[in-house]
Nucleic acid binder design. Sequence first.
DNA 1: GGGGAGACTAAGCGCTCGCTCAGGTTCGGC
DNA 2: GCCGAACCTGAGCGAGCGCTTAGTCTCCCC
Lengths: 207, 207
Amino acid sequence: MSTAEETTAGDPQAWAEVTPDAARRLLIAAVEAFAERGYHATTTRDIAGRAGMSPAALYIHYKTKEELLHRISRIGHEKALDILRTAAGREGSAAERLADAVSSFVRWHAGGRTTARVVQYELDSLGPDARAEILALRRQVDAEVRGIVEDGVADGSFDVPDVKGTTLAILSLCIDVARWFSLDGPRTPDEVGALYADLVLRMVGSK
Amino acid sequence: MSTAEETTAGDPQAWAEVTPDAARRLLIAAVEAFAERGYHATTTRDIAGRAGMSPAALYIHYKTKEELLHRISRIGHEKALDILRTAAGREGSAAERLADAVSSFVRWHAGGRTTARVVQYELDSLGPDARAEILALRRQVDAEVRGIVEDGVADGSFDVPDVKGTTLAILSLCIDVARWFSLDGPRTPDEVGALYADLVLRMVGSK
DNA sequence: GGGGAGACTAAGCGCTCGCTCAGGTTCGGC
DNA sequence: GCCGAACCTGAGCGAGCGCTTAGTCTCCCC
């Protein structure tokens, strides 16, 4: 369990795959603006302004404002899925893997709260095609967690009457961190991750 | 534990305190529209249209679009707080009261998903004064749940290392139901309430 | 150093937004 | 039968929206 990598919108490394530089600056500006005010309340002028450009510059790199949200959402979901896959694929007991998955997933939602907010809460602002693509990624996220829970049930280390419902609750708990977490609050992302890993192990009756 | 009372936006009884009739119809229309598309993506024309009125009629009963959201949010929070207070004040062990609080709170978020969505997720669309008023109500919600958890810890029936953090997680879990629950899904509000009550009792190490 | 490609801006188009206002309709009190 | 109050509509204002276009600037290749 490494310490939480910073994946705030301000970290250019998290968006290294977005090129050229101007397109990345615009995308980072959009993440910040969407997280603060929501997609619909954000104007293209605001995004371009934060990136130090004129409004028209946005349309050289992105066809529409929605394409920006789509790109952000896809990259974010892929990152989230990657985090869970890494934890799920490690050596160790089901309890260890579940604790690792939850704590790193929570750290991502807390530390990268800006990004996570957009990724988790602006899904409905996408058009039907883009939303369908993202929902497919979310089903994969669900499958990773459910896999770990099923492993623990199969080897008798977990006691879970309702695997699907419990999986849903675990993910719901983690995702909602993006709604309430604040870097100004009393807890660090690491602390919330550790607390939540413990709570989730209790939920699955880990022994 | 009664069965979930219907508190969907369509239920006029839930908004009985809003008068006259036209003002209530507008408010119900606003709840539905805000829940479907979000506050900023909803137009005053849409709200008035759903209520069968012209756009101008809205401004006879409400000063601004934001006042509509404020009224909805305040009434909704008061209802949520009422539900928790009722459960917290009942006779019975801490475990019984916590299970009752969680299951009825979850039933409200699931069954009245339309209202709960607006109440829980459109808070940031309010201006500073209105938001401050609502946040005060939320602190009272938090205090009710924390009180039950503290009771259980005090009498030794709960094992909770971090009372504040666990209270936050419990509420977070319940609130997020409004994000993912669908009446078309495989679970009824009652079933989710029962599942969540069990999960929360596990989280607090109830014995 | 001439020329084309790519990146960017100033200006603004067409549209829809929240909200307003003058005027019409309905209805109880007298 | 008339009046004022309450309620509602049709028309539309000013502003700001997403997005486009014409043109400028900066490179790099030759």
